[in-house]
Simulated assay, not measured.
Amino acid sequence: MSAQGEVHLSIEGAVASVTFDRPEARNAMTWAMYQQLRAHCEKLREDKSVRVVRFQGAGGEAFVAGTDIAQFQDFTSGKDGVDYEHRIDGTMQLLAGLPMPTVAVVQGWCIGGGLAIATTCDFRIATPASKFGVPIARTLGNCLSMANVAALVAAFGRSRVQRLLLLADMIGAEEAQACGYLVEVAAPDAIEASAQKLCSKLASLAPVTQEVSKEALARLLRHSLPDAEDLIRRTYGSEDFREGVQAFVGKRPPVWKGR
């Protein structure tokens, strides 16, 4: 593992495993890690031997704790934010476009970009202590793309997403299971067995049915999705966003000014 982290791909039989490996930073994603994730998705999309793909974080403390915020110090305008959100949307489209079922195996923190990845997967299982959130109203002062907001609303419901985005609340595993976001909550020493059982079941079912059903559901989500580039440009071009980044890197509370 490099200091910048890596995203590993391994294939065993019909099951592929993608691992986010940067545990010292709770698997926060660097630009290089996003590129590796995209490359793995492009490879898996063409591999007819793979029937299921599972995603997990290394270290047991986090799935992915968002994007590495230090990278945002290079942003100078709202256009940088628009370009970034387009890149994230492109990555999520590649992940969502995998023809086989996908499973997120969550232990610990699942935050920001990590929540986007887990939400893009078809199924999610987690440990009881896992936490799900997008605390950007508290930490960074940025925003999500319309595609990511729509995906969260489809997965959690509007009221919970308002709590995630406006209150910077975290949702625990019990609530996430109760609202249907998680298919199972398993103890840390049992989650691997649960993941293997779920992947084995998915791999035993009709792949064409799974593929076309995934595409049908994706088309419903994409239908009439409104544009939000103006909202992204305003947010990433704001003084508050620059303050949020500097405050996070400087390990101090941000001072929001509303401009």
Rank of each mutant, 00 (worst) to 15 (best):
A178K: 13
T139F: 09
A186N: 03
E229T: 13
C121L: 05
I171H: 05
R22G: 01
R259I: 12
L225W: 13
E12V: 12
V255C: 10
R45Q: 15
Y236P: 01
A151G: 14
D230G: 09
P101H: 01
V249E: 03
H223F: 13
M146Q: 15
A32V: 02
V82N: 02
A203E: 05
R233W: 15
V208R: 08
S224A: 15
E192S: 12
L44G: 07
Q35I: 03
P99K: 03
V212S: 08
S10W: 06
D47F: 06
N27M: 08
P254Q: 10
L231Q: 15
T76Q: 13
T119Q: 04
V103R: 01
G114M: 10
G78T: 07
I117D: 01
E46A: 15
V183I: 11
F248W: 13
Q36S: 14
E174M: 08
G237D: 06
A3W: 14
D47W: 09
I88F: 06
A58G: 12
A14Y: 08
V103T: 05
N27D: 04
L37S: 14
R222P: 01
G81K: 02
R124M: 05
F241H: 12
S194Y: 02
V149I: 14
A154P: 04
K197A: 14
I11H: 05
A187H: 10
P99M: 00
V255Y: 05
A186C: 07
I117C: 03
V134F: 09
A186W: 01
V134T: 11
G59Q: 08
S194T: 14
V208A: 09
V82I: 08
Q4S: 12
P128Q: 04
A228R: 13
V212F: 11
D189W: 08
E6I: 12
L94M: 11
A216K: 09
V103D: 04
R160H: 11
L198Y: 01
F63N: 07
R138Q: 10
I136S: 14
L164P: 00
L165Y: 09
I69D: 03
D74M: 07
R222W: 09
N142I: 02
R51N: 07
F55H: 01
E46T: 15
S17P: 03
A96S: 13
G258T: 06
A151M: 13
R158Y: 14
V103E: 03
R51L: 12
D74K: 07
E42H: 15
D80T: 00
A154C: 07
V149P: 00
R124D: 00
L220W: 04
M100V: 04
F156I: 06
V106W: 06
L140W: 04
A62Q: 07
A129M: 08
D240R: 05
I232G: 02
T91M: 15
D89G: 01
A186E: 03
R26L: 15
R124N: 09
G244A: 08
A62N: 06
E184C: 09
C121T: 10
L225C: 05
R259M: 10
A173T: 10
L225N: 06
T209K: 11
A28E: 14
A126S: 10
K251Q: 15
S17V: 06
G244H: 06
S224R: 13
K257N: 13
V245D: 02
T102F: 09
